[in-house]
């Protein structure tokens, strides 16, 4: 079975605009919304993707993590046949995106960052017409549309005009639209941007259940907690390049700076600090009144040593907190800048 997604040396270069012309010279696809690269006059070309190699097996929940301008949108654009690669290749479900874009479109569902429903139609009409574009007869699409609206909490908005929906509801309509033709592969571009925390959690649940149904999900995000919680594997991208690719756990283990160990002692921690500082594998040890903090590369190994040091200093801990390394720290170490 071919992988769900495969890109080889994928490159996308946006040409420099001519002379005095300003404005956007990039993809207008909303995945990523307005992140089409704005090429100021006089600027050189923009390299949005610089030799990207990705492979996503069927059934995986795959994340693309990176800040705006990283190339996530362009990657999705290429895979959803909306952006033409400059060089390299990309295939979805074994179908080349350049050779057979129609074949690709039949197998994918796309949820853009900014909802772009057909505003001339009601909610349910959006789903029914969209199904019709895929050749699905009304007898099939109507019950399916009703079920999707029910599942996504829009059952009572079927006859509403799209403009009367809230942002979160419109986003859920986009998901319903992406699913109406039951695609094997789902693309979501920053699906929770602009949603309130409750809507966000609800959406995560929806995505989890979609994944449980066996779909391949490709999601871009710049929220590290989202990527961490949802994805089987995660690619960290910036400036069109792949910086790291692994499971979230695997990536976090690579995060330097280590695990943060915070220990509350039964008295001033200063003496314990002095002993702890000489231990190997630790960095940035500090003490403040009863609180000892230290970063350890390997928390499991460091902890007994720290406890012994504390004991030697005549202290015992009353509370120990461990904060594992985060994707954020990994990202910062790889790129020198924060995710958002």
């Amino acid at each position: 079975m071919p992988p769900a997604i495969e890109t080889r040396s994928l490159k996308k270069v946006y040409p420099a605009p001519s002379g005095r012309r300003r404005g956007r010279a990039g993809p207008l696809m909303t995945p990523g919304g307005s992140s089409a690269p704005t090429v100021p006059s006089g600027a050189k070309e923009i390299v949005a993707l610089d030799g990207l190699d990705l492979e996503v097996p069927t059934g995986e929940f795959f994340g693309l993590l990176g800040p705006n301008g990283a190339g996530k949108t362009t990657t999705i654009g290429v895979l959803t046949t909306r952006v033409r690669p400059t060089s390299g290749s990309a295939a979805v479900a074994g179908i080349d995106v350049s050779a057979n874009p129609v074949g690709v479109k039949q197998r994918i569902g796309v949820v853009p960052q900014q909802p772009n429903p057909d505003r001339q139609l009601t909610v349910i009409q959006n789903l029914l017409f969209h199904a019709a574009y895929f050749g699905i007869p009304r007898a099939v699409s109507l019950p399916r549309a009703s079920a999707l609206l029910e599942e996504l909490g829009l059952a009572d908005r079927g006859e509403s005009k799209v403009d009367h929906l809230s942002g979160g509801q419109q986003q859920r309509l986009m998901i319903a639209r992406a699913l109406i033709h039951e695609p094997e592969i789902l693309f979501l571009d920053e699906p929770t941007v602009g949603l309130d925390p409750q809507a966000r959690l609800a959406l995560w649940e929806v995505l989890r259940s979609l994944h449980a149904q066996g779909r391949t999900i490709i999601m871009t995000t710049h929220y590290m907690d989202e990527a961490d919680r949802l994805c089987d594997r995660l690619a960290i991208v910036d400036h069109g390049k792949l910086l790291a690719l692994d499971t979230p756990t695997g990536l976090k283990a690579k995060a330097p700076g280590g695990t943060l160990i915070e220990m509350t002692m039964d008295g001033p921690a200063a003496r314990a600090l002095a002993l702890v500082e000489s231990l190997p594998g630790l960095s940035r040890a500090g003490a403040r009144e009863n609180e000892l903090t230290v970063y350890a590369d390997r928390a499991g190994e460091a902890l007994p040593a720290i406890l012994r040091a504390a004991e030697q200093a005549g202290r015992s801990p009353v509370d120990i907190r461990l904060t594992p390394p985060s994707l954020e720290t990994l990202f910062v170490s790889l790129t020198g800048r924060k995710l958002d």
């Binding site: 853009p112 772009n116 057909d118």
Partner: peptide, 10 residues
């Protein structure tokens, strides 16, 4: 950006 709704059609 509604054109994209149409452009999703196969």
């Amino acid at each position: 950006r509604e054109i994209e709704d149409r452009l999703l059609a196969p």
